[in-house]
């Protein structure tokens, strides 16, 4: 046993808080170490002095004390309504759980950023292609008509499209653009070209000769019919 430890054991020994083994170790050390033996003797003297000076508590004025207590408890509130409806540890546990869940959520966002799924989970690749083909099938005759538009036809109104049909095709185009961007990004330029054509058609007025010529030129220059054939061959 080290002397530092023995100083503590002296106190515990005098308070009767050592077990048999500790007591034996302590006594052995005291026998061998004159410094600790001296300290033990002095501590005993200190305890003796403390006991000699021990003062019993005098009697209190019990009646006066009770009067004070009685008047306070009658005036004071009987039941203290706690602000907390549940024990405080419940709130502490809830706060801890919230912090943990928030940490886990933020940690997941930080370390495993969400990867966009290639396709909207509700739409399969097959359905996507089918929708695109149907759209192209609907649009192709119109495009062929404009591709074959001849300046000799001037004065005829056959090229003027029903605005409702054009708007419907424009909406379809917009929806397909988003889906194609996820499934088949190589078709995006075609969709964008079709978008331009449909917008021109929707703004075209009766007697407009210039727009059909521009659309015809655009279809040829951008090889739109060729690209449409590729989609249909898929």
């Amino acid at each position: 046993m080290k002397c530092k430890k023995c100083k503590e054991k002296i106190i515990l020994h005098l308070y009767g808080e050592l077990n048999k083994q500790e007591k034996a170790e302590f006594k052995n050390h005291i026998k061998e170490c004159p410094e600790c033996a001296k300290d033990f003797a002095y501590t005993k003297d200190v305890f003796k002095a403390l006991d000699n000076a021990k003062e019993e508590a005098p009697d209190a004025d019990w009646e006066k004390c009770w009067r004070e207590i009685g008047s306070s408890v009658q005036v004071g509130p009987r039941k203290q309504k706690s602000f907390f409806l549940a024990p405080r540890w419940v709130y502490a546990a809830a706060a801890l759980l919230f912090v943990f869940v928030l940490g886990a959520f933020l940690g997941r966002l930080w370390f495993f950023p969400a990867q966009e799924s290639p396709l909207d989970p509700g739409i399969s690749q097959g359905s996507m292609n089918l929708a695109l083909k149907e759209y192209i099938d609907e649009l192709k005759p119109i495009l062929i008509e404009y591709a074959n538009y001849a300046t000799s036809n001037e004065g005829e109104e056959t090229v003027l499209m029903d605005k409702k049909i054009v708007r419907g095709l424009l909406i379809q185009n917009l929806l397909l653009k988003d889906l194609v961007a996820k499934s088949n990004p190589s078709f995006i330029p075609l969709i964008e070209d079709l978008d331009i054509i449909l917008k021109e058609l929707s703004n075209m007025q009766t007697g407009d000769r210039e727009t059909p010529s521009l659309i015809k030129k655009f279809i040829h220059e951008r090889e739109i019919l060729f690209k449409i054939d590729i989609v249909q061959a898929m």
Partner: peptide
């Protein structure tokens, strides 16, 4: 430890008997 330190002078002065184990 504080009590022992502070009472040392007074206890020595009053010749409290040193005791052995």
């Amino acid at each position: 430890a504080t009590v022992k330190k502070n009472l040392r002078g007074l206890i020595m002065e009053n010749n409290y008997e040193m005791q052995k184990v």
